[in-house]
Design a binder for these strands. Structure first.
Lengths: 190, 190
DNA sequence: GTCTATAATTTGATAGAC
DNA sequence: GTCTATCAAATTATAGAC
């Protein structure tokens, strides 16, 4: 019954969630053990008990985020839902992040910084994008040129998140998502 | 003859260019005065002579980058070039950055981090996006829904840069740019 | 598990000589 | 303009008591 996802004690999960939020707001370098400790009500040295090194903490945050997002998206099943409905799920995740929480995607942030990150963290970011692109490509498998279309769709959502947050115009997510869906629909889907 | 762009002494320009590269690689927090000093062959205290505060240095880097990019794009003149040709100029800039230098756009990086940046820097990032979106919207002014299309186009390029750099697949820039141009052409351009 | 205490390093920034 | 010297603060990380 157990998945391959690591199961952490409650306090470690609090730390992972605090770290996720802080990374998504300011990037990996902007997160400190002291801040995380304050977030979860312990001292910095105690955070090191749960995650001895920052690079390992970062990688754990990404893997947990991957699992959560893929679980929210669900399994791709084109006999149960259309291409458009699958894509809508993805748009909904990112729209909610921007509009409710003012946050961009964790992978987007770490991808931007990836050239300067510890190897364990940039490798986790790469894994995240690969898993997500696989999901999108499968969801678009009825479309012509599904692989490129998947990159286009994910790139558009990631880049638009940055614009929406920077310009403080969360409605951009909806406008571009609508545009994107029209593109997909007109692009060879049965 | 003078533009409103500040003109800096030669060493200050060296610093600005070193800072631009470092920010684009690792983000604003990843840049230190000591590193910049080493880049340009002076000491950290001397960098403070040119740019007393890091936030002001950051804003200056962004404004200089804005001016450079807009100058490269040139004035929009739809009597001299088509919509597609104008858009191609923009794609070329970003493709070159990713494929030759392995770097994403400065605005993309700072936009991602914008929630945690000093106000002067996040404001500069916002200015950058507004100027660039104005240029794109003007270039697309013959298209239906030019404003949304401009956000879509810029978002797609920015997000794809992140994917291309993180996945170490620079060719993604070309593939998605082609896709994007087809979208624009089919989207109501005269 | 959490704490105090501390080490070793790095950071942004200033003062003042040259 | 650049330097040396220095500062105060913050950072990741460890040792050891409880």
């Amino acid at each position: 019954m157990k998945e391959d996802a690591a199961d952490y004690p409650a306090k470690a999960i609090e730390i992972l969630e605090a770290a996720e939020i802080r990374i998504r707001r300011g990037g990996f370098e902007a997160v400190s053990y002291r801040d995380l400790a304050a977030d979860v009500g312990i001292k910095a040295a105690s955070v090191h008990y749960h995650f001895p090194q920052k690079a390992l903490l970062g990688a754990a945050v990404v893997d947990r985020y991957s699992d959560k997002l893929l679980a929210t998206l669900g399994r791709v099943d084109l006999t149960q839902a259309t291409v458009e409905e699958h894509l809508q799920r993805l748009c909904n995740c990112y729209r909610a992040a921007v509009q409710n929480d003012g946050m961009i995607c964790l992978g987007c942030m770490l991808g931007a910084e990836s050239q300067d990150l510890p190897d364990a963290v940039s490798a986790a970011a790469r894994r995240f994008f690969k898993r997500l692109l696989d999901w999108i490509e499968l969801a678009l498998s009825d479309c012509a040129d599904a692989a490129t279309l998947a990159v286009h769709a994910l790139g558009t959502l990631q880049g638009t998140m940055i614009l929406a947050v920077t310009l403080k115009r969360p409605e951009l997510m909806d406008e571009v998502a609508d545009h994107l869906k029209r593109l997909i629909s007109g692009s060879g889907a049965a």
